[in-house]
Design a protein around this nucleic acid. Structure first.
Ligand code: MN
Ligand code: MN
Ligand code: MN
Ligand code: MN
Lengths: 218, 218
DNA sequence: CAAATAATTTAGTCTTGCCTAAAAATAAAT
DNA sequence: ATTTATTTTTAGGCAAGACTAAATTATTTG
């Protein structure tokens, strides 16, 4: 039975290898988990001995098939619980991440299966992140960052690539939520910031924000 | 923030002091938590330093007001989660205890409040155990062990005083579930075992079983 | 009441997961 | 190609929580 610490390391390595190159660095893991590089090295030795990662000294680390399967299952649980909290308990989308960080470690296959069913086998969580199925397969979403659209383009909000609470609260304020239609009114050349229209409401967002909003172009 | 271990000790001490005398013994805690007496002594020192228990060497232990409040809240969470698992996810009542043992340690006041609401503020869990409210107040249930009834008496099943899975599965087999009506047909003098009728189905149960079924006499 | 038994506490270890400081390896810069 | 800076690993420790064995205190029993 995997400890909570081991599960968090697997999840961190998984998400880091998604967003970048195959071999994840010790430092990047330490940063993601708010820990020290030396602690990471310690843990990598343990993960290696459990055949969950391949680690060559000084060369970074990658998940084994077994490690990837386990990591995916934790992501699945995290996103199912977030969906439960928002859809059933009516949490706001900026409040669920920390609670889901705890719930994802509950060990019961039956619980996951029944929860999934109870929620109607959702494909995406409240932030638009894909929920892998019981075999670890992720649904695909043909969405692109809002920052890729041109002036005059329209897009439907499909998700966000940050679950930071301040970011999400800001989106709430300017009416950005999943399913809403965004019109790109203007792109300011100077700093690539974007003027948008949602529900007849104009807003001005930075490039950084636009990069973290995922839309399906219409 | 309390560790899982601390919470489990508090809960154990709470339940032991409910069912017996005020001062709980080291050995009884060790037995309940499947650990060794020496480990219990270690932990009692820690709990004492946190003002969660009063412990006089060799004289047993009791919860402080603070300790009792925290223990009650864990019981509350355990029973709310059991209710969720049975009512919403359709677990059987013999399958929920171990999962609830994990879920009870999730830390989020908002989660508890919203879960309670989502479940319709239940007063009793799937085993008939009372669920304390947010202030720690337990609802009262005027139920009595089935073993207290006389021949010819009738009673409605209000709960059980065991969440052991084999015991609950046995009850399933003879149609004993919350709300069902039991008629006491005969009490065998020799061993005080009981012949009962439920849903026109006759069963013969031991005194030990009868003691663990709680009914409201009709 | 003394002797035997049972319960509890203490002493000394172990594992997990984390830390700091120092050493070693790799990457970047002159 | 050295020197410098960065990254990673090692060495040594700490706290929580558990264990075994031994010592101490309480309780029974003859
Ligand atoms: Mn999240
Ligand atoms: Mn999410
Ligand atoms: Mn239970
Ligand atoms: Mn229960």
């Amino acid at each position: 039975m995997l400890s909570k610490a081991v599960e968090n390391y697997l999840k961190a390595i998984f998400s880091l290898s998604e967003e970048g190159n195959d071999n994840v660095s010790t430092n990047s893991i330490a940063k993601k988990l708010n820990t020290k590089a030396s602690s990471v090295t310690d843990m990598l030795r343990k993960l290696t001995s459990k055949s969950l990662v391949n680690h060559e000294k000084y060369k970074g680390v990658s998940l084994t098939t077994k490690g990837k399967k386990l990591a995916t299952n934790i992501v699945r649980k995290h996103r199912l619980w977030e969906t439960f909290l928002v859809d059933k308990l009516h949490f706001n989308w900026d409040e669920v991440h920390d609670v889901a960080e705890q719930l994802e470690h509950i060990k019961s296959d039956k619980l996951v299966t029944l929860l999934d069913e109870f929620l109607g086998n959702p494909k995406f969580d409240p932030h638009g992140d894909p929920i892998p199925d019981e075999f670890g397969k992720f649904p695909t979403s043909n969405s692109t960052p809002l920052s890729n659209l041109k002036e005059g383009d329209k897009g439907i909000v499909m998700g966000v690539s940050q679950d930071n609470s301040t970011f999400l609260k800001f989106l709430d304020k300017i009416d950005i939520k999943l399913g809403n239609l965004i019109l790109v009114k203007d792109i300011i050349e100077f700093d690539s910031s974007v003027e948008i229209l949602i529900n007849n409401k104009e807003s001005h967002i930075s490039l950084e924000v636009a990069r973290n909003i995922l839309v399906k172009q219409k």
